[in-house]
């Protein structure tokens, strides 16, 4: 079943034509990755999906429902939840408070405590540090917190924006393990990554975008074998 459908989306920054007709689908329970270089339009695509930017043409549908009419905060409560780029946690709040804040779009009380426990089983490190101020966590822990906080919103689809950015290789591995774990539990994920090698290892399918257009789309396995991808993004010569 198609969870998210992005169809022929054109997005502009003023006069700059940033997305030139992007179409993507993500099926329920799937991990789909968007790979591409700097300025290709990956983050713009995510922003268009989450309602922070409005497309001039095309539509975004979640389980068949058009999201175009909804404001950004309403799209969150519809179940499209983004983990922002650069591990943006609420630095002055504690880990626990950050997680509570993640449940903001949900009605109060409805199993929030149980969900926090769920996040803690997924990220035991966060449980150890639940009283600690988020700004003092390490980079990897902050990324875990940002993901945990997004899960608190009960996403129907989770948008991950460059989760490996600026992390040490060991931590990148553990973040991707977590992504696999989430996948196993049935979370639908749209993963935007510059680290194409890692992204294509965990994803089911992938899209390669360049200057605002999808230039390739295939299963992750086949993209890994594709010569263009190997040359441009995997560093294989």
């Amino acid at each position: 079943m198609t969870a998210l459908e992005v169809h022929n989306v054109h997005t502009y920054y003023g006069h700059i034509h940033a997305l030139k007709g992007i179409s993507i689908t993500v099926d329920e329970g799937e991990i789909v990755t968007l790979i591409g270089g700097n300025g290709a339009g990956k983050s713009t695509t995510l922003k268009t999906i989450s309602g922070l930017l409005r497309p001039r043409e095309g539509y975004v549908k979640l389980y068949g429902e058009d999201l175009i009419d909804y404001a950004a905060h309403e799209i969150v409560s519809k179940g499209v939840v983004q983990v922002p780029e650069g591990r943006q946690v609420f630095a002055r709040l504690t880990v626990h408070e950050n997680l509570e804040m993640g449940a903001f779009s949900r009605p109060a009380g409805a199993g929030i405590r149980a969900d926090i426990e769920k996040v803690f089983t997924l990220f035991p490190r966060l449980k150890e540090r639940q009283k600690q101020v988020a700004g003092t966590l390490s980079g990897g822990e902050q990324q875990m917190l940002a993901m945990g906080r997004a899960l608190m919103a009960k996403p129907k689809i989770l948008l991950l924006d460059e989760p490996s950015m600026g992390l040490a290789p060991v931590l990148v591995d553990s973040i991707f393990d977590t992504i696999k774990q989430l996948h196993k539990e049935g979370t639908t994920i749209l993963l935007v990554e510059q680290n194409a090698r890692m992204a294509l290892q965990v994803a089911n399918r992938g899209y390669v975008i360049q200057t605002g257009e999808v230039i390739l789309s295939d299963t992750a396995d086949r993209l890994r074998e594709n010569q263009t991808v190997q040359k441009a993004y995997l560093g294989v010569s």
Binding site: H73, E74, V76, P84, L93, E100, F104
Partner: peptide, 25 residues
């Protein structure tokens, strides 16, 4: 209250607050 929480999130980081589903307006 819920409103107070939303203010707190907005004060800490407007962009993230919006990503949490807070209506900034």
């Amino acid at each position: 209250s819920r409103l107070g929480r939303a203010w707190m999130a907005m004060r800490e980081d407007e962009d993230v607050a919006q990503a949490m589903g807070i209506n900034l307006v």
